[in-house]
Every structure is written in structure tokens, then in C-alpha cells.
Amino acid sequence: MDEPAVRRAVARMAREIVERNAGTEGLILVGIHRRGVELADLIAEEIEKSEKDKIPLGTLDITLYRDDLSVIGPRPVIGASDIPADIEGRAVVIIDDVCYTGRTARAAMDHLADFGRPARIYLCVLVDRGGRELPIQPDFVGRHFEVTPAEDVAVLVPEQDGRLAVELRKTDKG
């Protein structure tokens, strides 16, 4: 996906979120570190443009909620979790770049529970690459990709990668 394609997907997901929520009332967007945070910014911009309404925007770092510390060891880069508004009774949209095993989404839901009890949690991802290991499905998807184990999906975002795109890459596995 090149930049215009990503932007179109982001704009469509923004519309779908507002439509599903019947407006922007009670909506909070939460990006997952690191690329989900930038995508959440883009989606929030789109919603602001069309609805003329500023949506609370938060970030989550799920590193300490992962279930695989004993498998892959500690990760030294831990971002801040910052939820700007009370999530009690509101609709929280978790935003990430790729949905794969579903373990990140599970960890994000566990983490959100520490901040309160939302009325509803949605999952929004730019790429759904299949391969779920948990019964979790995204509500809003930019693009489905059939990805073989020998390939990897790379979502590139401006602040970290210098451009906006989605690329399939060969891995040394498989």
C-alpha cells in the first residue's frame, strides 16, 4: 500500500468508527506503542476534519502486560501509557498497526481494565494479516493481507520511518 492507499484506508476507518458509534459522543482513541500511536493521530485528524470535534487521544504501552516475558525476555523500550480521560462507561477504540496473533490486543484490553470499565472496546488495525492464536477479531480493518510465514508485514509511519506505507517483506524464516 502506498501513501494515498493508506490515507484512504485511514479515512474510511475514521468514518466507520464514527458511524458505528453513532457520532463522536463518548469516543476515546487509544494508540498502542509505537506505530499504533501515530495511526491513532491520523485517525483522530480525520474524525476532527469531518465531525469538527476533538476526540480524546491516549496511548498504551503493553510491554508489561505481555504473556511471553519468559519466552522472549525483557524489552528495554517501554513507552508511557497515558489515558487522558476517564474511560468509565465510554467507547474506547484500540488502534494498532497490525493484527496478527491477537496477543497484543488481549494485553491492551487487560491494560485498559486498570484504568476503568469502558462501556465498549473496539479494535482498529491498519492491516489484518490473519494467524490468530486467540479468539479476537478487529472491528475496523484497513486492509486484509494473506501473509505466508515466510513474509512479514511492515507498516511504515512518518515520524519513525519517514513515510507512510505498508510493505510485505520476505523474512529469513520459513
Binding site: 519466552v71 522472549i72 525476555g73 525483557p74 528495554p76 496477543r103 494467524g131
Partner: peptide, 21 residues
């Protein structure tokens, strides 16, 4: 505590083999 709890050689080995995230 966090860094030591996850820092054993076997885990580092498992990390090299690659685990899906």
C-alpha cells in the same frame, strides 16, 4: 527485577529463534 527476571540464557536463545508477537 524486570530485567533479571527475563534475562536467562535459555530465554535469549528462544528470542534468537524468533517468536511471533
Amino acid at each position: 527485577l524486570y530485567l533479571l527476571a527475563g534475562g536467562s540464557p535459555e530465554r535469549a536463545e528462544a528470542a534468537k529463534k524468533g517468536t511471533r508477537s
